[in-house]
Design a protein around this nucleic acid. Structure first.
Length: 457
DNA sequence: GCTGGAAGGACCC
DNA sequence: CGCCAGGGTCCTTCCAAC
């Protein structure tokens, strides 16, 4: 490699890759990002995963090309109408702008890893990640300095940081700690909405007015009480709606808080240069699509909204526009009505080294069916639709579903139906099998009390 | 034209 | 040596039956 003089892309292909791992994240300031990219590239370049990923990126680029053709064919008249659509869309979004609510988004810092450090303080001084060789769910801040991060497979983490300690996740323990945080959240908002084990949205408007204190003061109290209760740190975002609060909670992570003043000027300034990727709901693909049209920030979204209108669905337009204006929900959503289930589906799936033996696979479906059935039994629910999920050895995903005439939950029925659907796919080489039940209803059981229905948090 | 099921995807933690 | 999760939600598109 040294002697020749190939184009720069050929000699440093890792510079071009920009995977999910390499974007900014707290704790990554002093890293050699180039080195990290290179190690990740070297570790994955020959894998099926990487091939699939490249293929997806290519397809998205082709999609961009098609959309650009479509855009080129838009007449002036049509474009005028898109501008009008945008004006309407902005007007109706502005009607949903509420500045008088106080939302706090609480985000536990490196939650799983911090819980492990709490239980074993020796982990505090070493690079450590919770997860397995297959996948990391959280890395502590020391490990992050090496480029180790969540959603990265452990073996890559090990290459970035050979001393990395991998700790097996203990979800029961995280759930316990999560419950402790919830006790704190309830003080400030009995109806708080939880977003997983490690984060929550609190509408603190009422608490603020009753106690005559500011959102920032409340955030201080929350952080102090969470620390007292759990011995863990968290970060808070204080803003006038849920989305802004969430973005703010990331600003001064870890163990910090950020307050966004509830006035239009401050919000506009905040949002102007905000990368679209920061909008919760905009992931890698949408980012790539938007970037393809030269749209990188929320400010760009507003400026080029007519292009978005011409090229994406109305729903996408209104979502992007609303978010980019710094507008989002400022009130709690309605809770599921009594008797209504809070969950829509229940599933279990497992990854394994690729297999094609039909009997082995059928046996695995059987055991999945039992697992799933047990999970359903513990919530006294049954379901109408069975969906089998297959991931082929090349990472292609297939789902096959069947809706029945009457709901089931027993392992034999689930197994029978799932097996039948799986058989139709043979021959296949699979790396993952999963079963999901949806169309759920509580089991009308004579003696059993219907537990686990309604009420999400 | 609407509705409901099936399949595929994007996204979140 | 090879190793890239598992639990969800929601949206879009297609197609068939009303």
């Amino acid at each position: 490699m040294e002697g020749e003089n190939p184009p720069i892309q050929d000699i440093q292909p890792w510079k071009a890759i920009d995977t999910v791992y390499t974007n900014e994240k707290a704790g990554m300031d002093s890293v050699d990002k180039d080195l990290i990219k290179r190690v990740i590239y070297e570790a994955s370049k020959d894998s099926n995963f990487f091939k699939k990923d490249e293929e997806k990126r290519k397809q998205t680029n082709e999609r961009i090309a098609r959309l650009k053709e479509k855009l080129a064919k838009v007449t002036e008249d049509e474009m005028k109408r898109y501008h009008a659509t945008v004006r309407d869309s902005i007007r109706s979004a502005e009607r949903e702008r509420h500045l008088s609510r106080i939302w706090i988004h609480v985000d536990m810092d490196a939650f799983f890893a911090s819980v492990e450090e709490l239980d074993d303080p020796s982990l505090k001084s070493v690079p450590m990640a919770v997860g397995s060789i297959g996948m990391i769910s959280t890395a502590n801040y020391i490990a992050r300095r090496f480029g180790v991060r969540s959603a990265m497979p452990g073996f890559i983490g090990k290459q970035l940081c050979p001393q990395l300690a991998l700790v097996k996740p203990n979800f029961r323990r995280y759930k316990e700690k999560s419950e402790e945080t919830k006790e704190v959240f309830r003080i400030f908002d009995p109806d708080f909405e939880s977003g997983g084990l490690d984060e929550a949205y609190l509408d603190c408007t009422a608490f603020a007015s009753v106690h005559g204190i500011s959102g920032e003061e409340i955030a201080e109290q929350i952080r102090n009480l969470v620390m007292e209760k759990t011995k863990l740190t968290c970060s808070c975002g204080v803003a006038c709606n849920k989305m802004l609060a969430k973005i703010c909670s990331d600003k001064n992570k870890p163990n910090g808080q950020f307050f966004l003043s509830p006035n239009i000027a401050a919000i506009k300034a905040f949002v102007k240069d905000l990368p679209v990727r920061k909008i919760p709901g905009v992931g890698c693909v949408t980012e790539q699509l938007l970037n393809g049209f030269g749209i990188n920030t929320c400010g760009d979204v507003i400026k080029n909204a007519h292009v978005i209108a011409a090229v994406f669905t109305p729903l996408t337009l209104s979502f992007l526009l609303t978010s980019s204006l710094g507008i989002s929900t400022a009130f709690h959503g309605k809770k599921p009505a009594p008797g209504e289930l809070s969950r829509k589906g229940i599933s279990c799936e497992h990854t394994f080294t690729a297999k094609e033996d039909e009997n082995t696979l059928l046996q695995m479906v059987g055991s999945l069916a039992h697992e799933l059935s047990a999970a359903m039994a513990s919530e006294s629910i049954e379901g109408l639709t069975v969906t089998v999920k297959l991931k082929l050895s090349d990472f292609t995903v297939r789902t096959r579903s069947l809706t029945l005439l009457s709901p089931i939950s027993d392992p034999e029925s689930i197994s029978r139906i799932a097996s039948k659907m799986l058989r139709k796919e043979f021959p296949v080489k699979l790396r993952l099998l999963g079963i999901r039940m949806s169309g759920l209803s509580p089991i009308a059981n004579a003696n059993g009390k219907p537990k686990g229905n309604s009420k999400g948090s």
